[in-house]
Simulated assay, not measured.
Amino acid sequence: MPTLRFEQPHDDSKLEDWRYVHNEIIPADPLSLDDVRERVARHRLEVAYLGEVLVGCSTVRPPRDGTATVIARVLPGHRGRGFGGQLYDRGAELARRLGAEVIETIVLGANEDGLRFAQRRGFVEVDRYVAGVDEVWHTLRLP
């Protein structure tokens, strides 16, 4: 399996890469560069590359009351090659180092690949909510 290169986005170029992946996978909730600048101050963000090619990104929301959220996103053209697993494993490891006892993820319902990925990893749905018109979000947790 090809190995990804991971970078924490600290400059506008890398923040823009993170934003691009997010907005491609979650078009229902597009973020501006200013939104991403605010997120990088609260969460742990990473961008993943195969060589110089942008493949995906991740978010780790540090634990609150022992629960952390880990989100791995892979651009559609790069799915099915183990990249989501690499992103997720790095995020889960970081969440545990930060003190997480429980790991959750959040997936937009329209992202069927993302839901299947989470379920294959053992996540089970614990909550679902609707935002906007026909925007169903699933919160899944590792048992």
Rank of each mutant, 00 (worst) to 15 (best):
N23E: 05
K14I: 07
E93V: 00
V55H: 02
H43F: 15
V40I: 14
P27M: 08
H78W: 15
R73A: 10
L45Y: 09
A72N: 09
T67S: 14
R79F: 12
H22R: 13
A41V: 15
S32W: 04
Y88I: 01
S58T: 09
L87V: 04
D29H: 10
G85D: 03
E38I: 05
G91H: 02
P62M: 13
D17S: 11
H10K: 12
G56T: 05
C57Q: 05
D34P: 03
V21W: 08
I26D: 01
G77C: 03
A41N: 15
R39P: 00
G85N: 08
D89F: 02
H43V: 02
R44Q: 14
V36T: 10
Y88A: 02
L45I: 03
A28N: 07
L15R: 15
G91T: 03
R61D: 13
P76W: 06
R39S: 07
V70F: 10
Y20D: 03
C57I: 01
V47I: 06
P27T: 05
R79W: 10
L75C: 09
E93C: 02
A68Y: 11
G85L: 02
D34A: 15
D12E: 15
P62Q: 12
R73M: 15
R39L: 14
A41C: 10
H10N: 13
A28Q: 15
Y88R: 02
T69P: 00
A92T: 03
R19M: 13
L45N: 03
V40D: 10
G51E: 13
G77D: 15
G66V: 14
R44I: 07
R61Y: 15
P27W: 09
T59S: 12
V21S: 04
P76N: 06
G84K: 03
S58Y: 00
P9W: 09
H10C: 08
V40M: 09
H43G: 00
G84I: 04
Q86A: 01
R90N: 00
R73L: 15
V47A: 02
K14G: 07
G51W: 06
P30A: 04
A68E: 13
G85W: 00
C57R: 03
E46G: 05
R19A: 10
P76F: 11
W18P: 13
C57D: 01
H78K: 03
D89P: 00
T59Y: 07
L54V: 04
H10Q: 13
P76Q: 04
R39M: 15
I71L: 14
G77R: 15
V60N: 01
P27N: 06
A41W: 06
F83T: 05
G66C: 11
A41S: 14
Y88L: 01
V55C: 04
V47W: 01
G77M: 08
P30E: 10
R73K: 13
S13F: 08
